[in-house]
Nucleic acid binder design. Structure first.
Lengths: 245, 245
DNA sequence: CTGTATTTTTAGCATAAGCTAAATCGTAGG
DNA sequence: CCTACGATTTAGCTTATGCTAAAAATACAG
């Protein structure tokens, strides 16, 4: 009866283990939909439009797939009301997320990929690798519990270590924090931050949090200052450093 | 204007480089067919039946696909007469073979897969990885020109180093040879040979080649003798050792 | 050289996934 | 409370890939 805590929501899973999909593995399309629902809503409900946007398919296709996913027992779906993952759907989604994040880690650490290139490649690979491959890869990587963006990697049983970080936009001047993860929603954001060395593990002092326009100014370990607008400040997740020196 | 020499046939490819498929990459089914044709016939013709057997699909499906492959300019096809690869089809097939063999090498050397498990995993992965991934992997592996079975790995431009090995069944008593490659057609053969240490790189003395029943008896470096029936003797490819001691 | 056995093709269907255009639902503004 | 607009669904098609059963072509044996 493990806890599963995601960034936005936390919830409990009951008796979880035995009944993963021993049957046929879902097609890669099916998996994409499940992952999209999870990324949008976690344990909540995702609308047709949101999923359509994320996957770049038409709303009609999503409606269609929602129906099919329900048949398969992977989502709960009510007309005009969106879909949410069932227990089985969640397990499947998290299996893919685990694969994705482990593959990204491998691409970055062993094949020298850059942050920008990693996502697309992992997106294709996650549908082709077996569980065996995934676990061997995890071993090769030393069983990391975060990927290089700092995102938590779900365990094989679909649980997460808990997440304690908050966006930089919610810190206060004077705090010393270190970067836990960086949102990977936008490649350009990733790029910008990467260029400036604002990556997981870095320690920052918060100089100013200006409520007026949401700009947060931080100073890094080299003494360089970085003014960060709302978009950026919300994409950087940090945790207070124990000893504020 | 490189040479391309395969096990069974050799032939020349003309101006080869510039026109690889810059267009859309073929689907994974299309690739499977191309590879099957290549594996069956090299530069020759593969029949509907042979391809159907190898891919475990119906003959009707193969006929259908042959037509489509011709539309795409990947094979030459004549009704009732089988299909052979065009230049473009060959390039595409060899691209997949390269991927497959590099992935197998990675699975064996870095993820600790056994010979038997490697094939199926590679079969799925070869359709999901990009050229970029493939080349980075090649670099990680030290640009090998043979995979762990000893099969030649095509270069990026679709050429092969030349192959000089012959099956053990065609050697003569008294020769000293080393194993270049082992046929990966059958998992059980692979298994048997792997168990006995009869793997690429091993040096053997040929004790007897009995024309009566095709049994070849060899002695390995540890002094152990192995009597090998026709099936096995034809699955082990060797090359004479320079100095017969 | 002829007829049977084997291969190959054709015809007709199935399924997963996607699309567009038209119809319908739900909700927020007046 | 009603209406209009955006979101959602339905209807009808499309494409890739597969299948089975029946028809046609080829090939081999006597």
């Amino acid at each position: 009866m493990p806890f599963l805590i995601a960034d936005f929501a936390s919830f409990i899973l009951f008796s979880f283990m035995a009944d993963s999909l021993t049957t046929q593995h879902p097609s890669s399309s099916v998996g994409d939909y499940l992952k999209a629902i999870w990324e949008i809503s976690g344990s909540g409900t995702a609308s047709t439009k949101e999923v359509a946007n994320r996957l770049s398919v038409s709303s009609a296709s999503v409606t269609n797939m929602f129906g099919r996913l329900q048949e398969m027992g992977l989502v709960r779906y009510e007309r005009y009301r969106g879909a949410s993952l069932t227990r089985r759907g969640l397990v499947e989604a998290l299996r893919l997320v685990r694969r994705h994040r482990l593959i990204e880690t491998f691409l970055l650490e062993h094949l020298g990929y850059s942050w920008q290139d990693v996502h697309k490649e992992a997106e294709r690979l996650e549908h082709a690798v077996s569980d065996k491959f995934t676990e061997r890869l995890a071993k090769l990587l030393g069983h990391p519990d975060r990927d290089p963006h700092g995102d938590l990697i779900p365990a094989t049983d679909g649980t997460f270590a808990s997440e304690r970080s908050k966006p930089l936009s919610e810190t206060e001047a004077g705090q010393r924090v270190h970067i836990i993860r960086v949102s990977d929603e936008s490649a350009s954001v990733l790029n910008h931050l990467g260029d400036r060395g604002l990556i997981p593990g870095r320690v920052l002092s918060v100089k100013e949090v200006r409520s007026l326009d949401g700009v947060v100014t931080v100073e890094d370990e080299d003494g360089d200052e970085h003014p960060l607008g709302e978009t950026l400040a919300r994409a950087i997740f940090v945790q207070a450093v124990a000893e504020p020196t």
